[in-house]
């Protein structure tokens, strides 16, 4: 049931909007991992980030995509909570850090064990439009004990102009999606985060909508 809802949502709402009103410049689409368990680590400027990543997958695969999302935001009211859990298929996690890592990540591990594709935004929040905020360490703790899971970095650019945080007016712009190479295994959270932010920086240079004059 939820799978059908998600397919309908992607096919009838996400894809038409992204195709006609938004427009994507996709680079290295073939690097996009089609099989889990895998983590896609993307920069985060807009709610549209998740939708854009959904639109890149065939409809037969969209139920495998599981965005990790902040419980305090997405479970805050009943309608959004129902929609986020049942249609989008988010894995809610607490941002306060009160829980121990293991409990916090158990749902993520469960999803990875099923061969799902986890979408993770290591910045933790959408932040200022088109600026990459400091990356959070959670992603390292999630993969450190898993030998079966690799991280694919993905950069989107331009979505923060289309629909930035706190704005309701949707203004059409073409957006870039650049998919990077899988990251090698790392031994510490600092190593992973510096590798990831270096990857984000390099992938950003391939964006048509990105230029230094901004």
């Amino acid at each position: 049931m939820n799978r059908i809802l998600k397919i309908l949502f992607v096919a009838l709402i996400v894809r038409p909007i992204i195709l006609i009103v938004l427009g994507l410049n996709i680079r290295d689409r073939n690097k996009l991992p089609m099989k889990g368990p895998v983590i896609i680590a993307a920069n985060h400027n807009s709610h549209l980030d998740t939708m854009v990543l959904f639109s890149l997958y065939p409809l037969s695969k969209v139920h495998k995509l599981r965005p990790i999302a902040a419980a305090d935001y997405f479970l805050s009211n009943r309608f959004i909570a129902w929609f986020s859990l049942n249609v989008i298929g988010i894995i809610p996690i607490s941002r306060s850090g009160a829980n121990k890592n293991e409990i916090m990540f158990s749902a993520c591990h469960e999803a990875l064990d099923k061969g799902d594709i986890i979408l993770l935004f290591p910045e933790g929040t959408r932040g200022e439009p088109e600026q990459t905020s400091k990356l959070k360490k959670g992603i390292y703790h999630l993969v450190k004990d898993r030998t079966d899971t690799q991280i694919t970095p993905v950069v989107t650019h331009g979505l923060g102009r289309t629909l930035p945080k706190g704005e309701a007016l949707f203004v059409p712009f073409n957006c870039d999606v650049v998919i990077g190479d899988k990251l090698p295994h790392t031994d510490s959270s600092n190593e992973l985060l510096s590798l990831l932010s270096e990857n984000f920086k390099n992938l950003l240079k391939d964006c048509l909508t990105y230029n230094q004059m901004e």
């Binding site: 331009g158 102009r161 930035p164 712009f173 048509l208």
Partner: peptide, 16 residues
């Protein structure tokens, strides 16, 4: 127009 405005620098304040 969308394509042009996407590649040329625009200010965040000019969305309207």
């Amino acid at each position: 127009l969308k394509e042009f405005l996407s590649i040329v620098p625009t200010r965040q304040a000019d969305r309207n």
